[in-house]
Design a protein around this nucleic acid. Structure first.
Lengths: 341, 341
DNA sequence: GTTAGCACTCTCTTCTGTTGAGTGCTAACT
DNA sequence: AGTTAGCACTCAACAGAAGAGAGTGCTAAC
């Protein structure tokens, strides 16, 4: 049995119908709706073939057919064309993204919201950790007496700051000296390689300006630690509730629990992501609880690290819309990073 | 008809039972469970009285009684004692909060998670905007050629930074001069009062170092703008799904839509919040869609502004636990702000 | 290879009867 | 006068039965 053009056409019609209605598609209704030139009986025969081949399945004997996950996979791989965003949507995205360039966190959550609003699916963005970037530069800026700010810059351009307390007697010049000593010591070390034992060594070596050193090292320590955290943003959970496949409260509960846990979401998305848009359908997901969900996602580069942007929806998903949207968002995110960070 | 001690005791028993089971409480079952010294018939009479007084209601004629919202209000006001966190819980909170002092955003989301995990309700934290704090200090730190960081400090101690591009020919000394000029100009102005027209004026006045000025003012402009945004964090939405009163998907959808929209949540919580723990029960909420929800919340001071921390759950809520937890969290948040920011 | 006809299957909805928890009322009791 | 036992009544929830409707698979004709 082979996949000829007519079978393809029928499979496509079923996928489109099912994505739209979430109901099994019957032969009769389908012929009518798509104005096919063949009779319902013929369609029934072809459907039986497609079922044998594994592309369709029947919820029960007397129902219509629905695409199997294999059927969706075939559709996605061989027949689907990614649908680009409309100009209006792109305009909206641009406007929104560039109006908020201020705070990276807000850009990201804005984009996540945009994604879920446009597609009506749940969106997620995983912002990468930065622990493998290289230390480049450190500056100590005096504030009022007894206070200073430590400013830490990595070679990927990430800037962090933190307030510290210092003895009141320290002069700005002394601060500068300390900063210089630290800069020479750390210079060109991988952030990830600056361990606490390094910090300990340095603590012991330098007795002069012990207090400032102490506080500064403490701050660096904590900044390094903090930089190792990935951030996860999820938006549009509500869209899941709308899908009829998640009427079952238990199923829904498990899924929302999954998506509320940053850790879980991080582990679900494959570590190696290209800048292609990838699709995971149902069971292709690593987690059993996600067998009714599909993911459409891609990677982006940020401060030399890999971030991930994606959509989560039912298997019965408008993949063509999802891939198009993700693609557009990826390139805009990339552009903003390039330009502003 | 007056509220005597026996009626109180009965009301209390009903509230406790109902909070636990979510089922209407019958006279017979109640007498048995609480080992009351009176008969079911007597309890029935008292219940009828309490219903007349508005503290109880009956879902239908042949069901038990449930506390009305007025009943809950009476319970909360007159009979309830706030239940303090256990030592373990406080330890956990301390440990968690202080391990993450690095990034304020992460502290906050950690605390939100703690809140929802401990109480099994949905928690929210509204971080205040900072646009009315006073400008105190500005510093320009040179990075590599052609780049600098602008460091902005407000008198409430808020520190912000931002990378800018500058002409390569600018020396560190010139940068310092520019910073000084700007510091003198802005000194002691309310951040909120530094309007764009101010910025425009200054732009025109100073022609020297036009380019740096330009870029710096741009950065300040954008930092000021960015500082006006409240941030909202919601955690533990999943806990809502667990409550039997939200089995109804439509109701649930509306509620989750509410809580996913930052704007809505911001508008729900009263603007004037004391450092007392406040409780809004069901209809006392401003929004119709929240008539089945209660909120327990309090305010905290951050950089001179008012933030809000709260819990959202069903009307049938363990208010005693909620108030205790919120109170504990409030004081820890306050402490961390005092100490580290 | 395609189509019409028809018996058959299975879910979904509606209806009906039954069960059981709980009430309100009355009359007796302390 | 307040408290209690007894009893008829109410109403939601559950289970089973019947009917409707959509869809299939198969057979025979085109």
């Amino acid at each position: 049995m082979t996949m000829d053009e007519r079978k393809q056409k029928i499979l496509e019609s079923i996928v489109l119908d099912y994505v739209e209605t979430a109901e099994p598609v019957g032969s009769r209704a389908m012929v009518k709706k798509h104005g096919l030139k063949i009779s319902a009986a013929t369609v029934r025969n072809e459907m039986a073939d497609l079922e044998d081949m594994g592309y369709l399945e029947q919820p029960h004997t007397s129902a219509g057919r629905i695409p199997s996950q294999k059927g969706f996979r075939y559709f996605v791989d061989c027949m689907m064309e990614s649908q680009e965003l409309s100009e209006q949507e792109i305009d909206l995205l641009y406007q929104m993204a560039k109006n908020n360039v201020k705070d990276w966190d807000e850009v990201i959550s804005g984009i996540a919201q945009f994604l879920s609003q446009i597609t009506h699916y749940t969106s997620f963005i995983i912002m990468p950790a930065v622990h493998t970037s290289q230390f480049r530069f450190l500056q100590l800026v005096p504030l009022e007496k007894g206070r200073a700010v430590i400013l830490l810059v990595t070679d990927t351009g990430l800037i962090m700051h933190r307030k510290i307390e210092i003895p009141e007697s320290i002069t700005p010049e002394e601060l500068a000296t300390i900063a210089e000593v630290l800069n020479r010591t750390f210079s060109a070390k991988k952030m990830g390689e600056i361990t606490r034992s390094d910090l300990q060594t340095i603590r012991n070596d330098l007795n002069k300006r012990k207090k400032v050193m102490e506080v500064t090292l403490e701050a660096i320590d904590s900044l390094l630690e903090s930089s190792s955290g990935e951030r996860v943003v999820v938006s549009g959970l509500i869209n899941l509730l709308k899908e009829p496949e998640f009427r079952d409260l238990d199923k829904l509960k498990r899924i929302i629990a999954l998506l509320e846990e940053d850790v879980v979401l991080r582990s679900i998305v494959p570590n190696e992501v290209s800048d292609q848009v990838d699709i995971l359908i149902g069971n292709e997901n690593p987690l059993q609880d996600m067998k009714d969900l599909s993911m459409v996602f891609t990677g982006y580069k940020s401060f030399g690290e890999l971030g991930k942007i994606g959509l989560i929806g039912p298997v019965r998903m408008e993949y063509w819309k999802a891939t198009g949207t993700i693609e557009a968002v990826r390139s805009i995110v990339q552009e903003i990073i390039q330009k502003y960070y």
